[in-house]
């Protein structure tokens, strides 16, 4: 662990704290309530967190995809760490997306679960897809574990848009899509706070990624020392 890495993660952590603090204050105290015709009132504020968490989970899976491809090109344990940690964090964010989405559904439509919301349905599939990553990972061993994990990170990431599209066409046929994203229709005062929330979540992801990478590196160094001691 180098000083530079510590400084980096400290700076990133501080930035994360500021951004998330600002977005919490902004979203709950400053941003206007959604009181227009058809507005959803207070509960609408969860939307900012819901959408930014969802986008950051996709970002995490994209990082895992890139790191997976990089691992296949140059099999360095560091890339495998990035894949593993990104998918773990991405999965946490995806589960939170489903939970916040469910809360929103309860508030907006009076039911905890709405299959006809394509985002909620897709994220449920995404959670399943990426949960399988850990099943595969725990059942493979050694260098093969890293290699298969990298391949699966690629397959799963490509499955995401395909799943989304499949859910979309299934619903457009069975019942027309009623609940479309209202993101584009946000007034500017809302949009600013949304962007800050999104940046905060992204910074949170990168901070956690860095922290865990440092931990993995330390663990591997420890392993190396143990090995050397064993050999005498």
């Amino acid at each position: 662990m180098t000083d530079a890495a510590v400084r980096r993660v400290t700076a990133l952590g501080a930035l994360t704290a500021v951004l998330i603090g600002a977005s919490v204050v902004g979203l709950f105290l400053v941003a206007p309530e959604d009181n227009g015709p058809g507005g959803e009132g207070q509960i609408q504020r969860i939307f900012y967190f819901h959408v930014s968490i969802a986008l950051v989970s996709l970002l995490a899976f994209a990082v895992a995809f890139i790191a997976g491809a990089a691992y296949l090109r140059r099999p360095r344990p560091w890339w495998d760490d990035v894949v593993l940690i990104s998918i773990r964090l991405g999965l946490v964010f995806a589960v939170l997306t489903v939970i916040t989405g469910s809360i929103w559904a309860k508030a907006a439509w009076g039911r905890w679960w709405i299959w006809s919301d394509p985002r909620l349905a897709t994220y449920t599939l995404v959670v399943l897809l990426y949960s399988a990553y850990f099943v595969l990972r725990s059942s493979a061993e050694g260098e093969r574990q890293a290699r298969f994990s990298a391949v699966y990170a690629i397959i799963a990431f490509i499955s995401v848009p395909i799943s989304f599209y499949a859910v979309r066409i299934a619903q457009s046929v069975v019942h027309p899509v009623v609940f479309t994203s209202k993101g584009a229709a946000m007034p500017n005062s809302m949009l600013i706070w949304f962007v800050i929330a999104l940046a905060g979540m992204a910074a949170l992801f990168f901070t956690l990624l860095q922290l865990e990478l440092i931990q993995h590196r330390a663990q591997r160094a420890l392993q190396e020392v143990k090995l050397r001691l064993e050999r005498g």
Partner: peptide, 13 residues
Amino acid sequence: DASGLVRGFGGRR
């Protein structure tokens, strides 16, 4: 013709 071959299994070489 091989030199310096290393291969580990589960934490030991």
